[in-house]
Design a protein around this nucleic acid. Structure first.
Lengths: 244, 244
DNA sequence: CAGTGGTCTAGACCACGAA
DNA sequence: TCGTGGTCTAGACCACTGT
């Protein structure tokens, strides 16, 4: 037997699905809904919590509850060219800032440089039509190159930095992506405008050149509930030769 | 200012971290904790909900609240050899079953075969020390090959199937992974013994051979809160030549 | 059966956002 | 200032688990 709050959630869900409650529309206030369903406020809030976890309802303290608009899908692609094709179509606004810093311990381990080595940090904050899309922090050791500020059209994932490394004569050899869903940090929640501790898909990317040196690393945070990430791997030459 | 339930959650969290509450240990009952912290039951439950969402506490209806044991980390690696090295160390129990079926619409799109074409389906359910680890469904079109039942030591991700395809003379060329966090289906929640609708990391893998034919596809489901996935990509030959 | 967590009430009061 | 959601109380009763 379904509980009271589940039945209320079911009812509101079908109202949203049928369009009776339009996207972006404000729901009636909680006391109003509570009296309409003849339940107490905590029970009604329990129902709204279910819908919030499902991503159907957005609660804004002091303003009201709203039917969540369809948010654009976020797509990461390890293949730079495929990503570009999509990016141009999607009209993203990308804000990049850069600074120089001494590598803290986590970054020195990631980039395999001594702690305190100089790094250039690029922070990419991308929006799609006012809606936060992704947060990327890209690091390049200063003794590898100083790519300077982006001049070309940037990519949300800092792929333009890697392009600049290639132009500078650095031969990229392999890229390792470590993908982990985890709760967002307060800074990420703020930047992506998601509720505190809501999950993000974290992608840790490390690019190595043909000499085995780490030439770039990136920490990406994508909103978990509307993200897909695509990775394409090709058989290496020796694998194909073994098969032949 | 932290709320009442947040301060209680903080306190319990530090008790768990310090080992005062041992892993797997049953917490005092909710009325007991409520009176100890001088709060009402709903407030105390709110604190436990926070810890449950963080994965620190497991609530079992009719039995009690327990400190969640450290669950083994689940690691997917796109690199078969790296994955093997880890797997042998970790002592996984893998159960494989196979059946033949006609491709439903979703699978025919994924495998690029006509709807209703014959497929071999392999279901891999992996445990590590009684704890569910991963669920993988692997599909091979029947006209590509019939790998038969696994004889070698299997991999949790069905990599042994791909090994068998290589031995059968099929030249694998590229693999595309599509990674999406999403709520679990009831079957997945059951198999992975996670709470209903808890998030899984879904990996959709499609392997293509040198003729461009899809020779294998897999649908993997991994428990979101303790999973990492690693993807390694190498510069293709033409990228390196362009750079030179 | 006893003991546990799950649901629910009918209020009170606080904190936030916008006018 | 007013209307909104957020927190909290002190209980009652239901549903599940193990003996």
């Amino acid at each position: 037997m379904a509980t009271r709050y589940e039945r209320i959630a079911d009812d509101l869900r079908s109202l949203i699905a049928s369009g009776t409650l339009a996207l972006g529309e404000q729901l009636p206030s909680e006391p109003e809904l509570a009296s309409r369903y003849q339940v107490s406020k905590p029970t009604l809030r329990n129902a709204l919590d279910v819908l919030q976890r499902e991503g159907l309802v957005e609660k804004l303290h002091g303003r009201g509850n709203f039917v969540r608009r369809l948010l654009p899908q976020v797509t990461y692609d390890s293949d730079r060219r495929a990503a570009e094709a999509r990016t141009t179509a999607a009209a993203l606004q990308i804000r990049v800032s850069s600074s120089k810093l001494k590598a803290p311990d986590e970054l020195s381990a990631l980039l395999r440089v001594p702690p305190g080595a100089w790094l250039t940090e690029y922070i990419y904050l991308t929006h799609q039509e006012e809606c936060p899309y992704s947060l990327a922090r890209v690091y390049v050791p200063y003794d590898v190159a100083d790519p300077g500020m982006p001049t070309t059209t940037p990519s949300p994932w800092g792929d333009d930095i890697r392009e600049r490394l290639i132009i500078a004569g650095i031969q990229l050899a392999s890229t390792v992506h470590r993908v982990t869903p985890r709760p967002s940090t307060p800074e990420e929640a703020e930047a992506l405008r998601i509720t505190a501790r809501a999950a993000v898909l974290a992608i840790e990317r490390v690019t190595t050149d043909v000499t085995g040196r780490v030439v770039e690393a990136a920490l990406l945070a994508l909103p978990c509930d509307r993200t897909e990430a695509i990775f394409t791997t090709y058989a290496t030459i020796d694998e194909l030769q073994v098969a032949q």
